[in-house]
Amino acid sequence: MSDWFSEPANWVFLVLALVIAVSAVRVVTSTNVVHSALFLVLALGATAGLFLLLSAEFVAWVLVLVYIGAVIVLFLFGIMITRAPTGPNVEMDHRPRAPAAMAAFLMFIVTAGSGLTAFGDQEITRLGDGTSTELIGEQLLQRFVIPFEVVSFVLLAALIGGITLARRDASPAEEEATEEEVQA
């Protein structure tokens, strides 16, 4: 164990993991929706740091750009538009919480346990040996070109679907209302 602590990368990991864990807990326990979203930013930022530690620079920056730059902004808009309650005394959770906590705990035991039994104390020996963005680009357009195209199609479908869903088509009731307004 002292070996483990003598490794500086592990100190970095510990700090980052602590930040991630605490902010993740806050994401799911905070009574304020906006706080939750901001803690998610913190968790994601720390995860990006973790990716840097794992020498996955490209993914780290993609995470920062896409998630923190775009997705969270979208979330904040969503919170704003749906007028989510932000006061301190709002019931944010279902009661009782215990079954959910139990399920989540079981999930943790199972996933962590399977990792522990499968990989024991095997080490990551490649730390610091960065994957070049060039390699990612090449792989993306050669070996993974079909998934890449599929994902692009998914994005297109999401784009169209999002527009179709969110576009306000006048419902019959609304149309009647406007007609009445016109008549009035």
């Binding site: 279902h94 079954p99 959910a100 399920a103 989540a104 079981l106 999930m107 199972v110 399977s114």
Partner: peptide
Amino acid sequence: QQYAGATVIGAVLLVI
């Protein structure tokens, strides 16, 4: 969410 909870428990039980 109750359905989702059931799914989670089910997945856990499957793994076990």
